[in-house]
Design a protein around this nucleic acid. Structure first.
Length: 268
DNA sequence: AAGCGTGCCAACCGCGGCCGA
DNA sequence: ATCGGCCGCGGTTGGCACGCT
């Protein structure tokens, strides 16, 4: 029977969103709410499909988004949750208010995977990666390797225990937000491993790299990309309604002003 | 200065699940 | 029980920024 495409792609715009489009979408949602994504672009006057609008709103325009780099604690939590839930990014993201599944997925694929690789752990199951013993490595490295394997074995055991305990129940518990502490030891082991491997230095180096990339990476203006808007949107939003947030944003920087801003930001 | 490689992340695509008719 | 439509999710891609040679 086959599924029909979510929208007629003919004549629809794709690719990066413009400021005007963002403005239209935000205005529409604030005034009308979200009832059916399919009709949102039509009513908002956008030449986009509903899916695209939904994605843009969820991943970028939502006022409660917490943007910026992930903290070490967040990373550890992601690793812990991933060990338990696998690639169910939306479930993982539900543990991080203000973070999107897309953001966490990207962070996992670009950074955490490497971090685990650095630790000699398989990113999927936290098992030690089969590695050749380097004959010319110094004693320190050997000790680290030993420790790494031992701890990793513990991590593996714990992961297996969690898995083998009725996984259906585990999932149900997870969905009911009843956080079980089975994997706390897993996380502790991971943290111990990190500290023993002097990962801090490595992470700091990495974080520096990360912060330098916190520039405008989209063709649209990210709210925290503008240096003069230093609001923690997440906590800010908790104290303010959506409308208040937009009013404030409008007072800080009028939407109409985005056009020239856009040019100055990206005008090279 | 130019070319190339890499990292990062926003956005797209297609599938599966859910739900109403 | 079946069908059809919408939404949400996860995998993947494309393009920009930046560093290195």
């Amino acid at each position: 029977m086959g599924r029909q495409p979510c929208c007629d792609k003919v004549g629809l715009k794709r690719g990066p969103w413009t400021i005007e489009e963002d403005h239209k979408l935000v205005s529409f949602i604030l005034n009308n709410g979200i009832h059916c994504w399919r009709v949102v672009p039509k009513l908002a006057g956008l030449l986009r499909c509903g899916k695209s609008c939904r994605l843009r709103w969820i991943n970028y325009l939502r006022p409660d988004l917490k943007r910026g780099g992930f903290t070490e604690m967040e990373e550890d939590q992601i690793i812990q949750l991933h060990a338990r839930l696998g690639n169910r990014w939306s479930k993982i993201a539900s543990h991080f208010p203000g973070r999107t599944d897309n953001e966490i997925k990207n962070h996992w694929n670009t950074r955490i995977k490497k971090k685990l690789k650095f630790l000699g752990l398989d990113a999927v199951n936290l098992k030690p990666i089969e590695q050749k013993q380097e004959t010319d490595s110094d004693d320190d490295d050997k000790d680290k390797f030993k420790l790494q394997v031992n701890v990793s074995e513990r991590i593996e055991e714990n992961a297996e225990n969690v898995k083998s305990s009725d996984s259906e129940k585990e999932l149900k518990r997870e969905e009911n937000n009843v956080v079980r502490d089975d994997s706390d030891e897993l996380l502790n082991n991971f943290e111990m491993l990190c500290s023993n491997l002097d990962l801090g230095t490595w992470i700091n180096q990495d974080t520096n790299i990360s912060t330098t990339t916190n520039s405008v990476s989209s063709s649209s203006v990210s709210l925290d990309d503008t240096s003069h808007i230093s609001i923690d949107e997440c906590s800010y939003f908790q104290q303010n309604s959506l409308h208040q947030w937009v009013d404030n944003m409008d007072s800080i920087l009028s939407w109409e002003a985005f056009n020239p801003l856009d040019i100055s930001f990206f005008g090279k």
